[in-house]
C-alpha cells in the first residue's frame, strides 16, 4: 500500500507522543480500540480550567501507520481549541488532511472516538461543568 506523504511524515515524526498524569483533574484520558482489532489509541488532553482551552495533548497508539498518523494529527488539531470546539472535530477532516484511502477510514473514526473519549473523561472529572466555549473568532 502506498502511503501519502503526510501519513509518512506523521509516522516518521510523530507529534506529541507521551503520557500525562491520568489523576490530574485537568487531564482527560481517552482509550479506544482493542488489541485483537489491531489498533488501540490513547489520547490525553490537558485543559486550562480558567479558559476551557486545551493547552496540551498527548497520544500513544498501537496500530498501523495510518492509525499512528491519525492520532498524531489529532493532537495537533486539539491544541488551542476549546473543549467544545474539540468535540466538533470530524473524522472526515483527518481523512482529508492525511489523504487516507477507504480501507483506512476506520483509523480516522478511531481518532475521533479517542478525542470524544478524552473530553468526556475530562468533563466527568469536572462534574460535567465545562466552561462555555469562549468564541475565539
Amino acid at each position: 500500500m502506498a502511503y501519502s506523504n503526510k501519513v509518512l511524515d506523521h509516522y516518521n515524526h510523530p507529534r506529541n507522543v507521551g503520557s500525562m498524569d491520568k489523576s490530574d483533574p485537568n487531564v482527560g484520558t481517552g482509550m479506544v480500540g482493542a488489541p485483537e482489532c489491531g489498533d488501540v489509541m490513547k489520547l490525553q488532553v490537558k485543559v486550562n480550567p480558567e479558559t476551557g482551552i486545551i493547552e496540551d495533548a498527548k497520544f500513544k497508539t498501537f496500530g498501523c501507520g495510518s492509525a499512528i498518523a491519525s492520532s498524531s494529527l489529532a493532537t495537533e488539531m486539539l491544541k488551542g481549541k476549546t473543549v467544545d470546539e474539540a468535540l466538533a472535530i470530524k473524522n472526515t477532516e483527518i481523512v482529508n488532511e492525511l489523504a487516507l484511502p477507504p480501507v483506512k477510514i476506520h483509523c480516522s473514526v478511531l481518532a475521533e472516538d479517542a478525542i470524544k473519549a478524552a473530553i468526556s473523561d475530562y468533563k466527568k472529572k469536572t462534574g460535567a461543568e465545562v466552561p462555555a466555549a469562549t468564541a475565539s473568532h
Binding site: S19, M31, V32, G33, P35, K60, T61
Partner: peptide
C-alpha cells in the same frame, strides 16, 4: 509509541482490560 507496551510495563494485565472494540 505503544499504549499497550506502557501498560504492560506498568504491570497491567491486558487480558482484563475492558476494551472498546469498534
Amino acid at each position: 509509541l505503544s499504549p499497550l507496551y506502557e501498560m504492560f510495563k506498568e504491570g497491567v494485565d491486558l487480558s482484563k482490560v475492558q476494551w472498546t472494540a469498534h
